[in-house]
Every structure is written in C-alpha cells, then in structure tokens.
C-alpha cells in the first residue's frame, strides 16, 4: 500500500501568533510536491510543524501519517515513523562526528545494531554520490561547514535514513549551479512508490532536476493555489502579483515584517553598537 501524509485544516501558533491558518495538503508515495510563495507566508512554519518542532503549537487540525495522527508525538518518534526534515538552518554540533550521529540515528530508527563495516561502505557511497569531502565521517556535525556543505549534509542524512516522507526546506538556497545539480539528482534518485517529498523553494532552478507532480502557492498562512508545472513557469515569468490580484490579496504576509532587531549576544561586550544605541 502506498504511504500517505495528510495535512488537514492545520492551524499553527508560534509565540502566540497564528501563522498557519488552515493548511490542507495530501502527499502520497511516489509524488513530489512543491510549495512556493513569497517570504513570510508560512512555508517554513508548515515544515517545522509537520516535523514536530516544540516551538510550534498546533491549535487545530490533523497531521496523519498513514492514518495515524502524529500531532501528539515528539519529534524523535515522528522521525522513527519515517518523517524527515532537511532544515533551512541545520545546527552545528561540535564534538559529535557525522558518522557517530548517523549510525546512532539509523540504529534508533531500525532498533537494530548496524555492522560497522556495512555502515562505512554505505556511508562512503552516499558521500561520493553527493561529492562531499571524504573525511566527512570524522568531521564534527556541520561544525565549520559552508552553507552549501550543510545543505548537502542534510541530503546525505536523507539518503542514509531512507525516510518515507521528506520535507526539504529551501534545500537549494546557498547552493551553486554544480551543487544544485548534484543535490537535485540525489533527491530524484529516491523517487519510488514508497517515498514522498515536499519541496519548499523560491527558485525553479532545482526543478530542472526534480520534476514535481504538484505545485502549490502559499500566502497568508494557507495554500491559495495548486496546479502543475505550468504554475511554476508563470510565477517565474510574472512573479506572484497576478495571484494576489486574482485572489484579492493585498499583503501576502502572515505577520507584518518586523523591524530588524539585533540582540546582544553573550560574549559580546555591551557596546553601543551591539545594543543598537
């Protein structure tokens, strides 16, 4: 049976502000969906809410993974059930090597111990596929990685963990043309009846390598338009204004753009500059 991920009337709150205002989306195994939309319309909130980031509170609606509501599950349990989120800003974890981390994650997921030799073989193969540095297994997780390396590392983890549904949040930002091709082809190689993918992006360039089956546009915290490849071409040529016009939306943002605040960090002396005086 094909796996199904259903998002039903999802309302999500962050810091007491409602960001998602009723998202409906169904992804089946074998399908690749793309969500596009201007900044600040709730795309990343959607991905974090599906994965189960504790900062995002679902106030209404359901997320069903093969008919099972995952809303009350913590993030790790959702991951073990087959959800995967390639993050826009992956954390750096100094001291934890990539190989220790991935192997532990794989063992947690399968509940079985993975022979070291087999693991190394598979890991090396995946590293080669993404054309990453061969010392990656011994490097600390994302520590000192360039933006592009971090993105590739997300895809590497996806190849190793073989999720049922992957959400890729702006996986293409910060990648140069060559890297885009490598990452795009790696994602496309996972295409199968048992794998579904939700791609969040601003650019249609990565779609040269991954042909999506469905395209959605998000505005004001909801999916306002869905279609196929033709939608992308039109957005690429004309932008989003025609959609706004068509739907009578004046401001597409969920929350108004806030004034840029620069917090004073620990380790930074309280200079005038850091305090914005």
């Amino acid at each position: 049976m094909k796996p199904v991920l259903e998002i039903k009337n999802l309302h999500v709150e962050v810091d007491d502000k409602e960001i998602l205002k009723g998202v409906n989306l169904t992804i089946k195994g074998g399908e690749i969906h793309v969500i596009m939309g201007p900044n600040g319309t709730g795309k990343s909130t959607l991905s974090s809410a599906i994965m189960g980031n504790p900062k995002y509170h679902v106030i209404e609606g359901k997320i069903l993974l093969n008919d099972e509501n995952v809303i009350d599950m913590p993030v790790d349990e959702r991951a073990r059930k087959g959800l995967f989120l390639a993050m826009q800003y992956p954390s750096e974890v100094p001291g934890v090597t990539n190989s220790d981390f991935i192997r532990t994650a794989m063992q947690s997921k399968t509940g079985k111990s993975i022979p070291l030799y087999k693991f190394i073989m598979d890991f090396d193969k995946a590293i080669e596929k993404l054309q990453m540095r061969s010392d990656l297994p011994h490097r600390y997780l994302n520590d000192g990685f360039s933006g592009g390396e971090k993105k590739r590392n997300e895809i590497l983890q996806m190849l190793m963990l073989k999720p049922t549904f992957a959400i890729l949040d702006e996986i293409d930002s910060g990648l140069d043309v060559d890297a885009l091709k490598i990452v795009g082809e790696a994602i496309d190689s996972l295409r199968s009846e048992t794998f579904g993918c939700l791609l969040i992006t601003h650019y249609q360039r990565i779609l040269d390598y991954i042909k999506p089956d469905y395209v959605h546009v998000m505005m004001k915290g909801a999916i306002v338009k869905s279609g196929g490849m033709e939608l992308i071409e039109k957005i690429d040529q004309e932008g989003y204004d025609w959609i706004k016009e068509e739907l009578g939306i004046e401001n597409e943002r969920v929350v108004p753009e806030e004034a840029h605040k620069r917090p004073a960090m620990i380790g930074e002396c309280a200079t005038k500059k850091s305090l914005d005086l």
Partner: peptide
C-alpha cells in the same frame, strides 16, 4: 544543553537521552 542541537539530533530519530548523551560527550571530546 542547547535545545536547537537537541531538536536537530532528535529530528533524525534519536531519543532525547541518546541525543543528550551524544552532545555531552561531544562537549567533553576536546
């Protein structure tokens, strides 16, 4: 323990205790 790091590791299926253990041993690794 950094909550963002914990969330990142847990989002790959590690239980909270496993993630905490990895981060702490990593913190002590130097």
């Amino acid at each position: 323990v950094d909550e963002d790091q914990l969330y990142y590791l847990m989002s790959r299926g590690l239980k909270r205790t496993e993630a905490e253990k990895l981060i702490i041993l990593g913190f002590l690794s130097p």
